[in-house]
């Protein structure tokens, strides 16, 4: 459904600048910019930003595909390229059977949700009207727009608040309006850039279920970006990890955590504990310690330990050698979230 090969994107410092200064890209200034380009006024380019580098990916039809990575790693840039909103600097690819160089045609085949910015909602209209008018504007019949709107509102849990104007909605409700609008057209590809931001746990689970079940059942291919790796892990068929604009890995969640065989993760919360006095035991490979000195006075520990039956006890003894009590202990297999954070990530990226 989506094929990308060797995609790179450099934001040229020069594109929006004229001798290193910024331009307004609206109205007369846009005109002047083009004029300025024509007469080659653009002398020194600002520092270009390499947002993506050599990304090669294939996403099958009907797949739920996750994208993970730290802030500024190029996730949004990649999604925008898939949406035909941004032209890659290099590389080639196709989305829903349309080659990259036909962005108009791509845009007709994808729905794009970004929860950044105000995303073109009409503030004076109700949630329901915003969605339905979007359908009408996209050429749906009135009846179809109506049934689809109701369905979309139900999908995101907005039935109760559908007659509130956008200006009267709470933050989480507004995010769901944007989401509902993207469900309307049933395009072959749905691109969701951080769809669960601002949603309460119940609606978050509802949206995750929607992504996991409903959309694939409608035959849609879903690309979803989210920082909550634990949530993402439960809904994707495959995921990609980006860092610094490069694709570190892509695969099923199980494949992504492979390479971490032989370790377990030990999460602990202690109360009143100090610096461990004992020597760090060989079973413990990595220690991450977060002090929460505030009113709770707790310390959180996250240890990577060898997958051996004596590891837990050795680690526990070590942690408690500085005094205090363990109020919570959980030992588990590594998860996708562990791959995205801490030393494990560095290991995987090697």
């Amino acid at each position: 459904m989506i094929r990308l090969s060797g995609i790179g994107k450099t934001f040229p410092g020069a594109e929006l600048s004229l001798r290193g200064t910024k331009l307004v890209t609206q109205g007369p200034a846009l005109w002047v910019r083009n004029l300025a380009r024509a007469v080659r006024l653009t002398a020194s380019p600002g520092a270009p930003v390499r947002a993506l580098e050599d990304v090669t990916l294939n996403i099958a039809a009907g797949e739920v595909f996750g994208i993970l990575g730290p802030n500024g790693s190029g996730k949004t840039t990649l999604v925008k390229i898939m949406a035909g909103l941004l032209r890659p600097t290099e590389g080639a690819g196709a989305v829903a059977g349309v080659e990259m160089n036909h962005p108009q045609a791509i845009r007709r085949r994808v729905s794009y949700v970004s929860t950044t910015g105000w995303m073109g909602l009409e503030w004076a209209l109700t949630a329901e009207e915003n969605i339905r008018f979007f359908g009408l504007l996209s050429g749906m019949s009135g009846a179809l727009a109506k049934t689809r709107t109701d369905e979309a509102l139900r999908d995101v849990g907005l039935m109760q608040d559908r007659h509130k104007a956008v200006s009267e909605l709470s933050n989480g409700m507004r995010q769901r309006v944007i989401l509902a609008r993207a469900l309307l057209l049933r395009t072959p590809v749905v691109l969701l850039d951080e769809p669960t931001v601002g949603l309460d746990p119940i609606h978050r689970d509802q949206v995750l279920a929607l992504v996991r079940e409903t959309l694939p059942a409608r035959g849609q291919t879903v690309i979803v970006v989210d920082h909550q790796a634990d949530a993402l892990e439960t809904i994707v068929d495959r995921a990609a990890i980006l860092a610094g604009g490069r694709l570190l890995r892509a695969g099923t969640p199980a494949e992504l955590v492979s390479g971490l065989e032989g370790v377990r993760v030990l999460e602990m919360v202690t109360r009143g504990s100090g610096e461990p006095r004992a020597a760090i035991p060989p079973q413990v490979q990595e220690v991450e310690r977060i002090e929460r000195p505030g009113p709770l006075g707790l310390t959180q520990w996250r240890l990577t330990v060898a997958d051996r039956s004596d590891a837990l006890e050795a680690a526990l003894h070590w942690v408690l050698s500085g005094g205090g009590q363990a109020v919570q202990v959980a030992e588990r297999a590594p998860r996708l979230a562990d791959v995205v954070t801490g030393r494990l990530r560095r290991e995987v990226s090697r």
Partner: peptide, 10 residues
């Protein structure tokens, strides 16, 4: 909602 949109490190 201060940590919205932040990565794990953030």
């Amino acid at each position: 909602e201060p940590t919205n949109k932040l990565d794990a490190e953030g």
